[in-house]
Every structure is written in structure tokens, then in C-alpha cells.
């Protein structure tokens, strides 16, 4: 008869037998840094061969599976200055350590809040951070798609100082190993914003396809980003220009044929990307192109209703009862 016990004893549980000098499988990761300030963090990164541990939702499972074995880890959990968010007259500034959860109730950016609420599960939203999403740069990442639509600057620090790049350049060129994303800066909403996402189930799902759409009433333009089509969010420039010209900016309304035409142009743009993502487990590439057009048309229709002039910034206006409109998620 086996005398097996549930594993409860503390001392026994520790792996005392392994002599590290002869361990055949020492994990490469040998140092954990837990800086308290950005200055400390970038000083550590300057020595190279370190990986940044942000929320951990991607990196920690990858460490366990030994898919990633950085020599050093720089954990940002205790860098409080990365966890602030704020606003100036026309910008929102969000620290890289801000979690999705922190954004879900943020009244200054209802669109961002709506996006944050549909990220993953509550556990992921409580853990995942803005900086982590940029570091992982998953081509379907919700945040990347949203930031691509609103026109975001990424603030990057290193021991040599700070620089900012726009999100598209950031995604194209990435981050040097010695650099740290410290914040993102995006314009304050000047009109409605929506984020629409298709997942593989009703909640707690990664985005298969998504669309962020931002209306700027001040500058009279519409910007849009589609996630899930290519290796970074797709900005359909021709479609954006088409809709800009089609909107009656004096009333904030949009004719139905412009909505439909916009969707078609977005689907067209999705079909023309140079680096399309292949068919995947859940959905085909053809479906994702189709859905991109549907989502884009819906997004613009929700932001710019046919008969609702004078909607206040940050709200989709009284005529739009459509689900997912930014106004619905104001809290």
C-alpha cells in the first residue's frame, strides 16, 4: 500500500536534492531585478541581455515552458511611476504599468475603457499592462489596434534618454533591448470612439478580428484600425479619406451609402495587405477580411448616426443606441 500524502509539508516540498553545481538543466535566467524607478530600470537594461517583465501574462507561461530564457529579468511591478495615468489639455498619458483593469472605468477615454473591458478574462485584465501589450506586440492585440486608430505616441526611455515614436513606427521597428516603454500618449477624445471585436466565444477571448474607430470632430476626420488581418494593425487610408469626405461634419451625420462604402473599402484594404496572417485554427483569413468590413461599417455607423446632430464628444449621441458605442460604456 502506498503511503502517499497530499503535498503539504513545507520543508520536504523544497527541492533540496538538487545540487546546483551539477544540475543538468540550470535555467538560464539568473537574475531578477526589481527596480523602483524608471531610472533604475533603464540603467539595468543598459547592460543588455535582460527581458522586461511587465504584467507577465505572456512571459511567465513562456518562462515555464522554457520558450524564453532571458539571462536577466527586470520586473516593473514596483515601479510606481509607471502606474500613473493622467491628462493634459489635449493629451492622455498612460503609464506602461497601467493594467487593463485600471482603464476599464476611465471616464476620460470611454473608447479606451470599452476596449479594456473586452480584453481577455478578469484575471488577464487585472494583470496585463499597457507596456506588456506593446512589448508582446501580438498582431491581434486589442490595445495595439486601438492605439493604432487613435494615433498614439509611444514614450521610450533608455539610459541615453527618452524618445517618442508613433505607434506604427514602433510596431515596424520595435524596441532596442536597452529600451523601456514608459508611457503612451494619445489625444483626448474629440468625438465618439468604438472598439468592436470578434472572439471565439462570448467572453474571455482573444481577438480574432477587431476594429477600432475614432471620430475627431475638431479636425473633422475618422481614423480606423483593423486587428487580425496582418502582422500589425491595418490602417485603411483610402477608406478613412472616403468617410471623411462623406460625413456631414456640420451635423455629425453620415449617409447610409457612405457607411456601406466605407465597409467595402475597409474589406478591400484588408485584402490588399502585403503580409496577411494565414488561416488559423478558429477562422479563415477570408472570413477575417469579410468581418473587417462589417465591423468597420458598424463602427462608423455607431459613431456617426444618421440623424443625431450635436452629440457631445465622448458619446455616440442620443440617436445611437447601438451596443458597443462608446457612450454606453461611460461610467
Amino acid at each position: 500500500m502506498i503511503v502517499a500524502v497530499p503535498h503539504q509539508a513545507t520543508d520536504q516540498a523544497t527541492d533540496q536534492s538538487a545540487d546546483q553545481s551539477t544540475d543538468p538543466a540550470p535555467p538560464r535566467t539568473a537574475r531578477l531585478h526589481r527596480p523602483l524607478t524608471v531610472a533604475e530600470a533603464v540603467e539595468i537594461l543598459a547592460d543588455g541581455d535582460a527581458e522586461i517583465l511587465a504584467g507577465g501574462t505572456d512571459l511567465v507561461p513562456a518562462l515555464r515552458a522554457r520558450q524564453r530564457e532571458p539571462r536577466r529579468l527586470v520586473a516593473l511591478r514596483r515601479v510606481l511611476e509607471l502606474r500613473s495615468r493622467g491628462a493634459s489639455a489635449n493629451m492622455l498619458i498612460i503609464g506602461a504599468g497601467v493594467t487593463y483593469h485600471d482603464l476599464t472605468g476611465w471616464s476620460l477615454s470611454p473608447g479606451l475603457a470599452a476596449m479594456a473591458r473586452v480584453v481577455g478574462s478578469p484575471q488577464i485584465r487585472n494583470t496585463g499592462t499597457v507596456g506588456g501589450a506593446l512589448g508582446t506586440a501580438n498582431p491581434r492585440g486589442d490595445l495595439l489596434t486601438f492605439l493604432s486608430a487613435v494615433g498614439t505616441e509611444i514614450v521610450i526611455n533608455s539610459a541615453r534618454g527618452a524618445r517618442t515614436v508613433d505607434v506604427a513606427s514602433f510596431l515596424a521597428t520595435g524596441l532596442a533591448p536597452t529600451e523601456l516603454v514608459t508611457a503612451v500618449r494619445l489625444p483626448r477624445p474629440c468625438g465618439p470612439q468604438v472598439y468592436l471585436k470578434i472572439g471565439s466565444r462570448q467572453a474571455a477571448s482573444a481577438a480574432l478580428v477587431s476594429c477600432a474607430l475614432v471620430v475627431d470632430r475638431v479636425h473633422e476626420r475618422v481614423t480606423c484600425a483593423i486587428g487580425g488581418i496582418a502582422h500589425q494593425p491595418t490602417r485603411p487610408a483610402a477608406a478613412e479619406e472616403f468617410v471623411r469626405q462623406g460625413v456631414d461634419w456640420s451635423t455629425g451625420t453620415i449617409p447610409a451609402d457612405v457607411v456601406a462604402g466605407f465597409g467595402e473599402l475597409v474589406a478591400e484594404a484588408a485584402g490588399a495587405v502585403p503580409d496577411p496572417l494565414p488561416d488559423d485554427v478558429g477562422v479563415s483569413a477570408a472570413y477575417r477580411r469579410h468581418a473587417a468590413g462589417v465591423l468597420a461599417a458598424r463602427a462608423v455607423g455607431r459613431c456617426l448616426p444618421a440623424a443625431a446632430p450635436g452629440a457631445i464628444p465622448g458619446s455616440a449621441g442620443p440617436g445611437s443606441a447601438g451596443p458597443g458605442s462608446a457612450g454606453r460604456f461611460r461610467s
Binding site: P6, H7, Q8, A9, T10, Q12, A13, T14, D15, Q16, P27, T29, A30, R31, L32, V60, P61, L63, R64, E69, L73
Partner: peptide
């Protein structure tokens, strides 16, 4: 937590080192 690998998850340490099953 005595003598743990650095790259271990909280789950792994809770179960394998601290016996929090």
C-alpha cells in the same frame, strides 16, 4: 521559499515549494 529557480511561476512555487496544493 528556499532555493527556488528564478523563472518559476507563483503557481509553481505555491505547489512545488510551499505545498499549497
Amino acid at each position: 521559499v528556499a532555493d527556488a529557480w528564478l523563472a518559476e511561476s507563483l503557481l509553481g512555487v505555491l505547489r512545488d515549494h510551499l505545498g499549497v496544493m
